[in-house]
Amino acid sequence: MSPVAWIVGGARGLGVVIARELAEDGYRIAVNYRRSRQAAETLQREIEQAGGKVMVMQGDVSRLPDVRRMAREVLNRWERVDVLVCAAGPFIFKRTPAIALSDQQWREMLDGNLSGVFYCVREVIPAMRRQGSGRIITFGFPEVEQAPAWEGYSAYAAAKAGLVSFTRTLAAEEAPHGITVNMVYPGDIRDPYKEAPISAARGKKDPRNPVGRPGTGGDIARVVRFLAHPDSDLITGAIVPVTGGFTNVHFHVK
């Protein structure tokens, strides 16, 4: 039976290439979207035309009822979840001091980037335990494992730093059940490279990255595919940078 990967927030951005490439590896793909229905359906057609199997769901991972409904849809249809990739996560590009954040902005960052991961893993881990295996992959930001200050982005940084501890704790708790939990953190990957393969960045220049070229969704997908592989069962609790050497010192809003 083909394995199942749920790419949370996979309809747009970095999750798109992850969905494409896991489908190439033989996974049945579940993706959810909050508002990007057209993008989700386009991705579905693309994967199906290549011979893959996809299900598309509308849902907001910051809302527990939505997560419960989506998890039921995946498990009712395919009876398993082998890989959960938590690629969703809102970000406010406007630099805002902590005390200037509204209650809504604070909740959006914490719920979308931290609570939503908790809701998703709580729904799928029982199935993974029954299977005796599973892969969970979360997303961070450069140097997040050091809980760095990130002026102007305090709520997002707090959520992701908390997610590091949650990722490592979950890795320790679920290791006896054959479930690995790891975090990948991208550099500052922006359009048109978010949904692009690595080949699209060859020969291009990005002076912010010491390696010299832009990062792509393909770079992230390559690492996710590695962590999702059955033979990667000795890797858990890892925080993996995929940044080209980029640090947030180089971050700026275009």
Rank of each mutant, 00 (worst) to 15 (best):
E143I: 06
N248L: 15
P192T: 00
W6L: 11
V74R: 03
L227A: 13
E73W: 04
T167F: 01
K194M: 15
W106D: 09
F91S: 04
R129C: 10
V85I: 13
C86I: 08
A87G: 14
K254C: 01
D103N: 07
M183I: 13
Y119T: 04
A87Y: 06
A50L: 07
R68D: 08
V121R: 03
P241M: 11
S133K: 15
A30Y: 05
G52L: 07
N248M: 13
N76L: 11
D103K: 01
V67L: 00
T169P: 15
V67N: 06
G187L: 03
L22M: 09
A71K: 02
A87S: 15
C86G: 08
A98N: 12
M57W: 04
V164W: 10
G51V: 04
V56E: 14
A238Y: 02
V240K: 05
G52T: 08
K204L: 12
Y119Q: 05
D82W: 03
I179T: 12
L64G: 05
A39C: 14
Y153V: 01
M183L: 11
N209A: 04
K204R: 15
S133C: 10
P97Y: 04
G10K: 06
A50R: 14
S154N: 06
P148W: 00
P197L: 08
Q58W: 07
K53W: 03
G162P: 11
C120E: 13
P142N: 11
T167W: 02
G217M: 12
A100P: 04
P214M: 08
T236Q: 12
V184D: 10
D231T: 09
E143A: 10
V224L: 13
P176F: 03
M70L: 09
I47P: 05
V253I: 02
G218D: 10
R69L: 10
G59D: 08
M128C: 00
D103C: 00
V224N: 11
G132W: 04
P207L: 08
S154L: 09
E108S: 13
M128N: 04
S2M: 06
A127T: 00
L64V: 08
A221K: 07
D188M: 08
A147M: 01
I220A: 11
A171I: 07
R12I: 02
T180D: 10
